[in-house]
């Protein structure tokens, strides 16, 4: 039941994207996300969608798996579309009581939906093809310049990687706890909101206890191995750019140029 959440989960496969340096993927994703905000134009979104489609195909992650990740933002998506549709002023094409749907509103909500979907798919693709460890390595490496202004880059990256690492563990645990309580006749589905919230107590209490216990154990294990922060720490597999990364950057630049050309002149 909880396995549908794909955000922050790694999908193991052997593809160009999986082998790519995580920094390339991180920067690439950022460039892609920025490109979505540059222009409000249909051809640009079409290009962005095609680009993402090709990249997803290259990643060997099944498309159905990607779409599952969208389920979690369905509400947000509908809400944004609805709000934009109703409250953007302009040429009225349909009205009911005090509500008005305008041509501009429809246009705006269409773009909004496209942007949100591509945004989520784009960032999901990164986490699906990159293990959390590699992702935080990349973040640490990309944020290195901030060390000069005393930002604790390593500590932030370590916290991130621990948090990401624990998402699947806690999801798994929640699943087990829910099953254990279901076996004792728990009912998570029926009843009103208050009853439903109350029925979650038998899940949340064991979950929190276990999360604290795990945090404690982890801290102990790290200390036992003399962890003392980032100073003087080296990596077993340092990140290294390969040919495919330069090729990827070239493709990204081409894509960005394409977006700008289409956005400006079409």
């Amino acid at each position: 039941m909880l396995r549908d959440i794909t955000i922050g989960q790694y999908y193991s496969a052997d593809s160009v994207l999986h082998r790519m340096d995580p920094r390339t993927k991180l920067l690439g994703t950022m460039i892609y996300l920025v490109s979505l905000f540059l222009f409000d134009s249909a051809p640009v979104y079409a290009l962005a969608a095609v680009f993402l489609g090709v990249v997803i195909m290259l990643s060997k992650v099944p498309f159905s798996y990607m779409v599952k990740g969208l389920k979690s933002i369905l509400f947000l998506l509908l809400f944004t579309v609805f709000m934009n549709m109703l409250f953007v002023k302009g040429e009225v094409i349909w009205s009911f009581w005090k509500l008005q749907v305008t041509r501009e509103g429809l246009r705006k909500s269409g773009f909004m939906a496209a942007r949100l979907i591509l945004l989520i798919l784009g960032s999901n693709l990164m986490t699906l093809t990159t293990t959390p460890t590699r992702l935080t390595n990349a973040m640490e490496s990309v944020m290195k310049p901030l060390k000069l202004i005393k930002v604790p880059v390593h500590e932030i990256a370590m916290m991130m990687s621990i948090a990401l690492r624990f998402i699947p563990i806690l999801l798994d645990e929640t699943d087990k706890i829910m099953k254990a309580q279901l076996a004792r006749g728990a009912d998570f589905e029926s009843g009103n909101l208050i009853r439903k919230a109350k029925s979650m107590v038998p899940v949340l209490v064991p979950l929190f206890i276990s999360a604290f216990r795990r945090a404690n154990d982890l801290a102990m294990a790290m200390e036992a191995r003399c962890y003392h922060g980032g100073k003087g720490r080296t990596q077993m597999k340092p990140l290294k750019y390969a040919g495919r990364d330069f090729a990827a950057y070239a493709v990204l630049l081409l894509y960005l140029a394409g977006v700008i050309v289409i956005g400006k002149f079409l």
Binding site: I177, A180, R184, G185, V201, P202, P206
Partner: peptide, 26 residues
């Protein structure tokens, strides 16, 4: 009645008595 391997996955009440009452209440 299925008893799972880890009791930690299901204990949540303040007292043993309340804990055991959970099933029959359900």
């Amino acid at each position: 009645g299925l008893v799972f391997q880890y009791p930690e996955h299901q204990l949540f009440e303040e007292t043993v008595f309340k804990e055991v009452c959970y099933g029959p209440i359900n």
